[in-house]
Design a protein around this nucleic acid. Structure first.
Length: 105
DNA sequence: CGAGTGACCGCAA
DNA sequence: ATTGCGGCCACTC
């Protein structure tokens, strides 16, 4: 493992997202930073769109607590998915990240 | 191989 | 408080 960060980046994000517990959420910047690149928040979103569709990307939201835009079904679908997980979503498609933001250990 | 795009973030006025 | 703009990295075609 000398580098190959690029090749691992996607894998790390994928793994990290899959490790997010139910009823908890994470921000793209947070995931990107934990992956090694705090400025790669956009890549996380890109991977979310082209990554594995078997991961709970629904638990991934923006730093402002707003839901994403490319989720299947739109924000309304994303909102429903989060509520199905037990996450409280406001009518403005925002979640209390201050309270639900999960932090890996 | 090269170029474009993106489910973002931060700062400034 | 709100709105607008730019920039970074990685992925895909």
């Amino acid at each position: 493992m000398t580098k190959n960060l690029a090749n691992n980046f996607k894998e790390r994000v994928c793994t990290l997202v899959s490790q997010i517990p139910k009823g908890r959420i994470m921000t793209y910047g947070q995931i990107a930073a934990l992956c090694g690149d705090p400025l790669a928040a956009r890549i996380v979103g890109g991977i979310a769109h082209f990554g594995d569709s078997g991961l709970p990307w629904q638990r991934v939201v923006s730093k402002n607590g707003g839901l994403a835009n490319g989720y299947p079904g739109g924000k309304n679908g994303h909102k429903a998915a989060l509520e199905a997980e037990g996450v409280i979503v406001n009518d403005y498609y925002q979640v209390n990240i201050e309270k639900l933001l999960w932090r890996p250990r």
